[in-house]
């Protein structure tokens, strides 16, 4: 009996719970990947690569430099030339707001892909800035934006109040991007006021956490609020959202918090500028970004897979997207 129990114990210990297996399913084989995200005012470009087998190792360059890539920009046909330096196919023509983009890429081994996108129209956005100083002990009671949020010791806040002009006749998608400094964002506006009193985000880079607050027990569209969760990439914070709850009078208020530590004072003295950009995204650019986030959130063996959205037609994938950008910077020294 003792021997039997020893054998059983050994069996359990020796048994690894994982093992490497061979893939025996179907594989569609490598396909062409065309990525093109064009900013109005810049020259159009396309990067053409190919996909790799999911168990392939190493880091080879999969750029396809011998593809035939053409682009129609606002009805004007262009052949794009490959540049080995930036590995892109680039056009001489600039992208204009409201124009229609069409790309076609053909390769002898991977067939042909094509896609279409409409560049968003130009939009307007006013930005008001403000500054408020606090005592060194903490936040004044009347700074309602911060209630319930652990903001640490701050002595001043500079805020950026964006008033977006949204065309109610069509869906619009926006991205606001800031430098990675501790900051708040809150949204106030006519439409949102009826849905919620205020919404605040706190972002502490490099790690992110967010707290949403909505007053009055009012009920909003939670997915829309989730869209506002920032996307952190390369240390830069960006907020992507649709205009489903925005109106002409909607304000998006971002606030940069100055901490009383010496390093922050040094930044202010050094005339560091807070750079920001507001982008109006095409539907394809917005959808692709949201789909990528969903893909990442559910890329787990415990979840049903989320297929990556693409607007590339033919035997390929990727995205053709575009955006119009307004950008500026604010010197913190001005405060």
């Amino acid at each position: 009996m003792k021997r039997l129990s020893l054998i059983l114990t050994a069996l359990i210990l020796v048994t690894g719970c994982t093992k490497d297996i061979e893939y025996r399913g179907t594989d569609r084989g490598p396909i062409m990947v065309a990525n093109s995200m064009n900013r109005a005012g810049d020259k159009a470009y396309v990067r053409v690569t190919r996909s790799r087998y999911f168990l392939d190792s190493g880091n080879p360059d999969y750029t396809l430099s011998d593809a035939a890539v053409t682009m129609t920009i606002g009805g004007s046909y262009h052949e794009l030339n490959y540049g080995s330096r930036n590995r892109n196919y680039t056009s001489d023509c600039t992208v204009k707001p409201g124009s229609i983009l069409q790309i076609s890429a053909a390769h002898p081994d991977f067939g042909q892909v094509y896609a279409c996108d409409t560049v968003p129209k130009a939009f307007s956005c006013t930005v008001d800035t403000a500054y408020q100083a606090f005592s060194m002990k903490g936040i004044a009671i009347d700074t309602m934006f911060y209630h319930g949020l652990d903001v640490g010791m701050i002595d001043s806040v500079c805020s950026f109040d964006f008033c977006l002009s949204s065309d109610t006749g069509r869906n619009e998608y926006f991205m606001i991007e800031f430098e990675p400094i501790r900051r708040f964002i809150s949204i106030r506006g006519d439409t949102l006021d009826t849905i919620c009193q205020y919404l605040s985000y706190r972002i502490a880079t490099p790690t992110l956490y967010a707290i949403e607050m909505i007053d009055n027990e009012s009920i909003g569209d939670f997915s829309e609020l989730m869209d506002l969760l920032p996307v952190i990439s390369n240390g830069i914070n960006s907020f992507t959202f649709s205009d489903r709850h925005l109106s002409d009078t909607t304000h998006l208020v971002f606030e940069l918090l100055m901490t009383p530590v010496d390093s922050t004072l040094h930044i202010i003295k050094s005339d560091i500028k807070a750079k920001y950009a507001i982008r109006s995204l095409s539907w394809a650019a917005y959808t692709y970004q949201m789909a990528a986030r969903n893909f990442g959130n559910h890329n787990s063996p415990m979840s049903e897979p989320v297929t990556m959205w693409t607007n590339i037609q033919g035997d390929g994938t990727g995205v053709l997207g575009s955006y119009v950008e307004i950008s500026d910077s604010l010197s913190l020294r001005e405060f």
Partner: peptide, 15 residues
Amino acid sequence: MPDKNVYVSEPELGC
């Protein structure tokens, strides 16, 4: 993306 201004949160996407 060649254009770093529109970020995709996942560095790798599957087909």
